[in-house]
Nucleic acid binder design. Structure first.
Length: 142
DNA sequence: GCCAACGTTGGC
DNA sequence: GCCAACGTTGGC
């Protein structure tokens, strides 16, 4: 069943461990290995087609791409113990203009993003307004 | 490379 | 159940 409106998310990855370029090369990847309860709970709220902003932490410190959920939450096959989940992500398109952390910090509409206040949360929700503003700054159409 | 923030672990 | 110690993340 298709929802009328999709949710938006932001995931973080250190490009040295898995970059946007890796996702483009792979075309699809299992977003597994999340070992934080809140991040996991966010993962579990994802549904097919949800848009996901791809942020490079540490090196880059910018949102570089738009991805989407192509497989809904399932048990993380890499979890040896505990109750963890994964989803599959696929690239949609790169941002024409990457949106850097400094830009986000300077944008009133983006001041409440978890990225700024909850810097360690690796999977976080993004509001409609925030999502639209980021794509606008990125000069990229959803 | 440093260190602040913060989530997790484990002793009591 | 508290809280100190510890490990990790991620900006600077």
């Amino acid at each position: 069943m298709l929802r009328m409106t999709l949710r938006h998310w932001l995931v973080k990855s250190e490009p040295s461990s898995y970059s946007w370029e890796d996702l483009v090369k792979d075309q699809r990847t299992s977003w597994d290995g999340v070992r934080n309860f809140e991040a996991r709970n966010n993962l579990r709220r994802m549904t097919q087609g949800d848009r996901v902003l791809f942020y490079h932490s540490n090196q880059g410190k910018q949102i570089v791409g738009l991805a989407q959920v192509v497989k809904e939450p399932y048990a993380d096959p890499k979890a040896r113990d505990g109750d963890w989940s994964a989803v599959d992500l696929a690239p949609v398109k790169p941002l024409k203009v990457p949106v850097g952390l400094a830009t986000i910090q300077g944008e009133p509409l983006l001041a409440k993003m978890s990225l700024l206040k909850r810097s360690r949360l690796s999977v976080q929700p993004v509001s409609d307004v925030e999502f639209r503003r980021i794509l606008e700054l990125a000069q990229t159409k959803a």
